[in-house]
Design a protein around this nucleic acid. Structure first.
Lengths: 237, 237
DNA sequence: TGGCTTCTTCACGCCGCCTTTACGACGGGA
DNA sequence: TCCCGTCGTAAAGGCGGCGTGAAGAAGCCA
C-alpha cells in the first residue's frame, strides 16, 4: 500500500492543526474539510482509506454525515466527539461509524485505532495479494502454488518449490547462497552449500529447455543465483 | 444469521454476571471462560462471532491471549480493561484487538460496539460465498448441504462434509494440513495429521471413480491437499 | 438395552523426497 | 603445468509421508 489517505472532517482549527501534525508525521496523506458538506465532497473525490469525523460540525449533524456516507461506501469511519455520553456513542456506532473516540484523546490511541481500521480494510480487499509471476515461458502462481512451463503444469517437491519461490520473490536480483539456505532450509543449515547446487540442478531439469545453458536460473559465480526477470532475449544465444 | 455467539473471557464474577444478563437478554448465545487458557479452548471449539477479553486475567497476559488467537483466526476481539492508559490501548489494538473499552463502561456502549464487530464480520464473510460449486461430475451445494456425484446424491458424515466444504471454499488453491485440522477439528488438534489422511480416503471413496487415481482431491506432497477447480482434462491420461 | 453410525487410533507397506557422497568440468593463480 | 576452489551432475540409502484396512471407543436412536 502507498501512504494511506485520510479525510478529516473537523471545524476546530486547533484540533485540525494537532491532527495534521500527528498524521502527516506518520506518513499519512491528509485531506481536510471544515464542514459536513465539504467533507462529503472530499470523501467522494479522494476515496480515502479512513474518514475521521467530528460530531460537532457547524452546518449539519455529524450523524447525518455518517448516514450519507454509508449510503454508498464502507470506508471505515472514526468519530471524534467532545460528548462522551453513552447514547451519543451508541447512536453514532449504530448509524454506521466503526469507532468512537472521546475528546480529549491521545495521539497514540487515535493512531492505533486508525491502524485497526486499515487492517480491516486490508482484510476485506486482500487476496489479490500474491500476483502471479511470468517471464517468457515460465509462469509461477504463488497463490495456487502452481508452476507452468510453456503452458504445461510442472510438479515440484516442497524444497524445490520453496527454492523457486524464494528466487521469484527476488526476481532480477542476486540471491546469495547464504540467503537461500537460510530461507529454504532454515538458519541451522547455512553451511551446507551443496544443498543449493543439487536442488538448482533439479529446478533446471524441470523448467529449462537446455539445463546446461539456463535462460531463467542464472549462476552468479562466487555469490549465488539470480532468476532472470525481464526476458529480453539477451545473454548467450 | 441465527443468534450470534459470544465468548467472554473474564475472571471477575460480578462483571460476568452483569454481562451474562446484558448479552443473553439481547439474544446472544454466551459462552464463558474464567482463564486465558480456557478462553483459547472455548474460542476454538465454539467458533463464536465475537470474543470479549478482559486484559487482567489470573493465569496469563491478556495480550498473549489476543496474540494466540490471531495466529489462526480473524474473529473480532473486543478488549475490556480496568487500565485506561493510552499505552495499554495501543498495545492491545496493535497485537490484534479490534476495539478497546475501559472500565467502567455502559452496557449500551458495549452492545453497540459488538454490533459494529458483527457488521464487520458479516461484510468479511460475504463474497458470493454460498454459490454452488461444480467441477466436471462433482456438484456441491453449500446452501442445501447436498453433494452430487455424476448426478447422484451422496451422503457425508459431519466431519467428511466439513472437510469437503473447507476444500471447496479454497477450490484450486492448496490447503495445508494445519489449515484443514484447524478448520475441521479445531485448533486443539493441529498435531493429529493422520486424521486428515483417514478422512481424505473416505472422501475419495465416496466421490472419486478411481480412489487410487484421484481427479478432484489432489495430494500436494509435504504440504496439504487441493480440490481441482478447473477441470481441463489435464494430468495423467 | 441393542444395534447402528461415526469418530478415533493403530499398524503396515509403498513410494517419493531429502540427504549425502563421489566425480568430472571449468577457470584462476602460483 | 599443476593445484585448488567452485559448480554441475548422477546415484544410493534412509527416512518420513501417504494411503489403506481394520478394530476399538463413543455417541445416537429406537
Amino acid at each position: 500500500m502507498p501512504d494511506p489517505a485520510v479525510v478529516l472532517v473537523e471545524d476546530e482549527p486547533q484540533i485540525r492543526r494537532f491532527l495534521r501534525a500527528t498524521l502527516t508525521g506518520q506518513g499519512y496523506r491528509l485531506f481536510e474539510a471544515t464542514t459536513g458538506a465539504a467533507g462529503l465532497v472530499e470523501v467522494g473525490s479522494r476515496q480515502p482509506d479512513v474518514v475521521i469525523v467530528d460530531l460537532g460540525l457547524p452546518d449539519m449533524d455529524g450523524l447525518d454525515v455518517i448516514r450519507r456516507l454509508r449510503e454508498w461506501t464502507a470506508i471505515p469511519i472514526i468519530v471524534l466527539s467532545a460528548r462522551g455520553q453513552e447514547r451519543d456513542k451508541v447512536m453514532a456506532l449504530d448509524v454506521g461509524a466503526d469507532d468512537y473516540v472521546s475528546k480529549p484523546f491521545g495521539a497514540g490511541e487515535l493512531l492505533a485505532r486508525i491502524r485497526v481500521a486499515l487492517r480491516h480494510a486490508a482484510g476485506a480487499t486482500r487476496e489479490g495479494d500474491e500476483t502471479p509471476f511470468t517471464v517468457d515461458d515460465l509462469h509461477v502462481d504463488l497463490l495456487r502454488r502452481q508452476v507452468f512451463v510453456a503452458g504445461k503444469e510442472v510438479h515440484f517437491t516442497p524444497i524445490e518449490y520453496k527454492l523457486l519461490t524464494t528466487l521469484v520473490r527476488h526476481a532480477g536480483r542476486v540471491v546469495t547462497h547464504q540467503q537461500l539456505l537460510r530461507e529454504v532450509w532454515g538458519p541451522a543449515h547455512t553451511d551446507q552449500a551443496h544443498y543449493v547446487r543439487v536442488y538448482m540442478a533439479h529446478l533446471r531439469h524441470k523448467l529449462e529447455a537446455e539445463p546446461a545453458r539456463p535462460r531463467y536460473l542464472l549462476t552468479e559465480p562466487g555469490v549465488g543465483y539470480r532468476l532472470a526477470a525481464d526476458w529480453s532475449g539477451s545473454g548467450r544465444a
